[in-house]
Design a protein around this nucleic acid. Structure first.
Lengths: 181, 181
DNA sequence: AGCTACATGTAACGAGTTACATGATTAT
DNA sequence: ATAATCATGTAACTCGTTACATGTAGCT
């Protein structure tokens, strides 16, 4: 049920269209919650029906109209109540590891290549996150509590990508060592 | 679609009942794929219909009959074909981080307590994994390629829990620093 | 002429969760 | 007594993915 709450938390005090939210989710919030455009539109519809958010239609010239959503008092209450409940640790479903488990079925080079590819993906992601860190969170002591919270999620993304890269390196070394296949 | 493939990879050369598989998933394989008992039973039904696995009923005294599943040649082909395809990096959906984003709504102590609780969960998990490591993978040089692959997934679990613990510690330090709430 | 960005949605399907249902054995 | 373990499954629901549908503006 957390997508609804993630949207409420993301809305904060600002107004967003579904499209804006989707961009925010796929750009800056992807290290803590991923969602597709369609999921967001559907969830916005549900949240509006519940009265947790309210929309305002902004006519635009030459573009489709925009529907701007704002959190309501009821939405804030829902988010607050949810925030007080304990959070479940994320379920891990890592396809790459399943392929490692099944690795004996394919040439060793295939799995090693795939791990290298993942290492590159994570390295690129890490570089992006580190740049954001430098640009926006260079001086920790100057941050407000709210900014520190946002920074904490970015640190989580940085930690995650670093751990993935380290695992890829370790595993390439481990599996490359001479041994039959 | 990876649950089906995870089951096929887990079956390997052995026979498992749905119940056995569920235990394996909730005990030793949880650091790469999580699935509930119901999901496993449903997926086994589908896989049998497809002809990827075959079952044999083992009558038992005083207990319900057991249905033992084995991978078929067709199942091995399906798994092999899938193994050659690239793997998508896991989608991250971390509830705790959403609560961090919404932290300004609740007393600071609530979120700090929750992070501490997660730190404990991950510490316990890490200890379990490290014990398995000592018991089964003490001497890396003695492992076959297949065992190295299994060890690689355990190392992934160890890396993951370590990264989570480190993040919890960092974040508690970051958010504890004097600043209004 | 074709691609990307802007902007919203419906429909169908597949994956994951929760609740319900049954019933014996073993350990506390 | 009662809880946990063994063992299988159905049904309903929610969440996530993929495909389809529409249409303008601006860039190359």
């Amino acid at each position: 049920m957390a997508l609804a709450h993630t949207i409420l938390a993301t809305l904060g005090n600002e107004s967003y269209s579904g499209y804006d939210l989707w961009k925010k989710f796929s750009q800056t919030s992807k290290y803590y919650w991923q969602a597709s455009q369609q999921q967001i539109y559907r969830e916005l519809g549900k949240l509006e029906k519940e009265g947790a958010i309210a929309s305002e239609i902004i006519p635009q010239e030459g573009r489709p109209d925009k529907k701007l959503y704002k959190i309501t008092d009821k939405g804030i209450e829902i988010l607050k109540t949810w925030s007080l409940e304990p959070a479940e640790p994320m379920a891990i479903r890592e396809e790459l590891l399943v392929k490692v488990i099944a690795a004996k079925l394919v040439p060793k080079s295939v799995i090693l290549q795939e791990i290298k590819r993942h290492q590159q993906i994570h390295s690129q992601q890490l570089a992006e996150y580190k740049q954001i860190e430098q640009e926006k969170f260079a001086d920790t002591s100057q941050l407000t509590f709210e900014q520190k919270c946002i920074y904490a999620t970015l640190r989580c993304g940085i930690g995650y990508e670093s751990y993935r890269i380290a695992w890829c390196e370790d595993t390439i070394a481990l599996l490359s060592e001479a041994s039959d296949n």
